[in-house]
Design a protein around this nucleic acid. Structure first.
Lengths: 346, 346
DNA sequence: CTGAAAGCGCTTACAG
DNA sequence: CTGAAAGCGCTTACAG
């Protein structure tokens, strides 16, 4: 079972409170005594029991706020599952998670949510930021003035005082797609990129990573596009048709974003589904289905749940144990899946 | 914070002990009272606090045994890390993990370890089994006579009373490799398989999965081999040389097992490294290095840590909460990595 | 069948 | 600077 604080107290001939003060550097203790106790604890191989600690501290009630943007999208639903998992864990450890889902993307609502959470007395916030100066200023205000640490997830906000970021390295994601595409098409020919919004930094970084790596590693591949489809199947189909007409010898398409169905339908219409090699992002919607039927060759994605789970737990560990996050940029793993590695529960 | 057992007791006008008996079906309680309490708990939205529960139960000291085979191999070292992580978690929840590392593969030692664990009073065992009748009988003996549940990991032992298995679906792993290889070589030409031991069921299943899927999906690919290299670099090199001489037009090699370095060295010697497409297994040894330099195109593998972590936690959850495992076969996810998706901490 | 009490390992006011 | 005591939410003998 392990050494307890009581055993150390007995061995040192002091009270348990004194051992606690020594081991947790709470001050109000004679330094020599503290040293002696620490040494005894060390010798006895003391490891604090997290259970006792947590139960005792559950009086304090660590409260963590979470702000989610575009909460209705399928991707965010997966992120939400991760948040719920973290919430359960935090609950069972005596804390509380306060969740605020913003249905679309709104700077105004985001700031309102932050203020609401502050008035509710949260000790930390995990949030999806928005590229606006006002949000940026508000994050810094919270961190510096109110001492409420903030973790960003999904999108980062680099030049702020946020504690860390959890999400995908979009540029690297694009490079991984390039590595796959290069091999799929045998290192030469025409390859197109279809993206969602030119204004979205994550998507742009995927496009950039894809293009730059293709150029570096497969110089004989000719890049077509990017075309933008605004994550709409119909527009994605139109873009595909345009590309096919202008490039009848097209060998591959990389989609950074949604609209896959529209693309696949159009490829099928032209009798090119399966022969035009296709790589898409994220494990949701009909993507697995399209991969099973052979229209999509590879899917690249991340564990969306982790993106919800980790930010909350990073903050909880910080508040509960004083444990600092491992690094400022916590990139989620980039998964590559083909039709044989589709998880079974889907 | 949530409703406590004390609040329910007050609301119901009974003692906390009575509430406990009602909510946990411990008997020795008038059924009507129990029903009423359960209803009140339901209405108040009671969710038991795991912390209080765990701390209180830590008197009982749940003890879980783990038996590891071939503990010195790199793969098992990773599995071991997962076991250590589970051990820490179990420790901090008031339990104990008793670990026994068997350096090589020995049925005798395995049975000794099982008996040792029983004499130490473990309540459950996670183990790597060995294909021997005596082991099989012993597993059934433990489960049925001693009521010590057993989870197998790494290798399964299907026709026993073991609770469940955690590990890779080797056949599917081979199929995933076939899907990759088929695309890498453009769907035609000669592809070789080099395996480790013909006697190892996991490796054989990879070979089978690879071969059958290639045949089904890429009928124009001609399969060469399998050759066996006994996980030895020198022998793997020799096998490669033989294959290259007999098949100068070889387009790809799938390695089910170790010896990658030997293969890559031989390919380099013949000036074929990078052009002969290579797929290997497991994220260890020099594999990432070989992938970075372009000799290996894809690596297929699993989260070895999960293979150590999950079996222990499955048993802990069973003993602590009565939580049953989700299924009898818990296949670990099959990861595909290329040079762009190598985790950063390596 | 039910209650009162002690205990799990830790933290935290409160006295001194 | 130090100790004695109460408390976190739950379980578990022990009485009755």
């Amino acid at each position: 079972m392990g050494v307890t604080i009581r055993q150390i107290a007995e061995a040192a001939g002091v009270s348990r409170g004194t051992v606690d003060r020594a081991l947790n550097n709470r001050g109000r203790i004679k330094p020599e005594v503290a040293d002696r106790i620490r040494q005894i604890a060390e010798e006895m191989g003391y490891k604090p029991n997290q259970l006792g600690r947590a139960l005792s501290m559950s009086k304090n009630n660590i409260k963590i706020g979470v702000i989610l943007q575009a909460a209705e999208t399928p991707f965010m639903q997966c992120v939400l599952e991760g948040i719920e998992r973290a919430k359960d864990e935090v609950d069972s450890l005596g804390g509380t998670v306060l969740l605020c889902k913003i249905p679309h993307i709104s700077g105004r609502d985001t700031i309102d949510a932050m203020e609401h959470m502050r008035s509710e007395g949260v000790s930390a916030i995990a949030m999806v930021p928005i590229e606006e100066e006002e949000i940026k200023a508000h994050i810094n205000l919270f961190v510096e003035e109110y001492h409420i640490p903030i973790v960003t997830f999904n999108s980062d906000m680099e030049d702020t005082k946020r504690l860390c970021f959890v999400g995908q390295n979009a540029f690297q994601c694009g490079r991984a797609a390039a590595g796959l595409m290069g091999e799929l098409v045998g290192g030469c020919g025409k390859v197109a990129v279809i993206s969602g919004y030119s204004s979205n930094p994550s998507l742009s970084n995927r496009v950039l990573g894809f293009g730059s790596e293709l150029k570096a590693k497969y110089p004989e591949i000719e890049l077509v596009g990017p075309e933008y489809c605004f994550e709409d199947n119909h527009l994605a189909g139109q873009a595909t048709e345009k590309i096919l007409k202008e490039n009848p010898d097209l060998k591959g398409i990389y989609m950074t974003s949604h609209g896959e169905e529209g693309v696949c339908r159009m490829l099928a219409k032209y009798g090119r589904a399966g022969t035009v090699k296709m790589i898409a992002n994220d494990f949701m919607g009909k993507n697995y289905e399209l991969m099973r039927e052979g229209s999509i060759h590879f899917l690249i994605g991340q564990d969306a749940q982790i993106q919800g789970y980790e930010p909350v737990m990073i903050l909880f560990r910080l508040l509960f144990n004083g444990e600092q996050p491992k690094g400022e940029l916590q990139y989620t793993e980039i998964f590559i899946r083909n039709e044989y590695t589709i998880p079974e529960n889907l």
